[in-house]
Computed example of a mutant assay.
Amino acid sequence: MTTELLDAALVEEATKKSGLIWVRGAQGVERALWHVWHEGAALVVGDGPGEQPLPGLADGGAATVTVRSKDKGGRIVGWRATVVEVAAGTQAWDAAVAELKGKRLNAADGEEMPARWARECRIVRLEPDLGAGLPAASEGDLAAPPVPTPATTRDAVPAGLPRLLGRRRRP
């Protein structure tokens, strides 16, 4: 029983302090998701316009969560989760929205965001399933190729630019 309590405390503290968690649903790729820890579970919102995708996170399904350090980026802990979708209009929904709303950065619609979430998005609770203990640490670096995206990076700096910027004007 003591080991389970220590595992639960590790999962909660690491997840609370992490800005992102890496989640893999029953199928699909592992995704970095912003979240909020609330009442013993990680809450995520997504699957709507302008929100993060939640691939493979079906109600009642299973997921694997990996928590990384904010400052070093290394893996702190991995845990199994049960996926529970929060129904819009319930007390649980209102409590989840209150927590998530304060942590949502760069929302274009501000006060209209909860209504948009109710119409177009899903809120999912990732509840830790620690009955079998924490999964063993994986061997290797766990690196995965990036998800395909139409986004691009800027072009290389022109060769003459550092020389132009390095010139000093004489007084």
Results as ranks from 00 to 15, higher is better:
98 A>H: 06
52 Q>N: 08
11 V>P: 01
23 V>Y: 01
153 T>N: 09
136 A>R: 15
89 G>F: 06
95 A>V: 06
43 L>Y: 03
93 W>F: 11
29 V>R: 08
69 S>C: 12
89 G>R: 03
110 G>P: 02
13 E>P: 05
81 A>F: 09
77 V>E: 02
49 P>K: 10
67 V>L: 04
54 L>I: 04
60 G>L: 11
137 A>Q: 10
165 L>V: 10
56 G>L: 09
155 D>G: 08
59 D>T: 14
121 C>R: 00
74 G>V: 15
137 A>D: 14
5 L>I: 07
154 R>L: 06
121 C>H: 02
127 E>H: 05
49 P>A: 08
18 S>A: 14
71 D>Q: 13
154 R>V: 11
56 G>A: 11
77 V>M: 04
20 L>V: 11
109 D>Y: 10
117 W>F: 07
10 L>P: 00
95 A>I: 05
152 T>Y: 07
132 A>F: 05
35 H>T: 03
80 R>N: 11
43 L>M: 06
17 K>T: 15
134 L>H: 03
109 D>G: 08
97 V>H: 01
134 L>G: 00
67 V>N: 01
12 E>R: 10
88 A>G: 11
24 R>V: 04
150 P>H: 13
26 A>V: 05
125 R>D: 04
94 D>S: 10
9 A>F: 09
5 L>Y: 12
44 V>A: 03
133 G>H: 10
160 G>E: 14
168 R>M: 14
143 A>D: 06
107 A>D: 09
88 A>M: 06
161 L>D: 02
153 T>C: 10
125 R>N: 03
126 L>Q: 01
19 G>F: 06
98 A>E: 13
114 P>L: 05
85 E>P: 02
121 C>F: 02
152 T>N: 13
61 G>V: 08
70 K>D: 07
156 A>P: 06
112 E>R: 13
31 R>N: 13
62 A>V: 13
80 R>L: 12
18 S>M: 02
151 A>E: 06
125 R>I: 03
54 L>E: 00
13 E>K: 15
32 A>C: 07
65 V>L: 07
101 K>S: 13
159 A>T: 12
112 E>K: 15
151 A>R: 13
159 A>Q: 11
113 M>K: 08
148 P>F: 01
134 L>V: 08
126 L>V: 04
125 R>Q: 14
68 R>L: 08
44 V>L: 05
24 R>T: 15
17 K>V: 04
75 R>I: 15
38 H>S: 09
148 P>W: 02
104 R>G: 03
129 D>Y: 11
151 A>Y: 15
152 T>M: 14
131 G>A: 11
113 M>F: 07
9 A>P: 07
156 A>F: 13
96 A>H: 00
68 R>H: 12
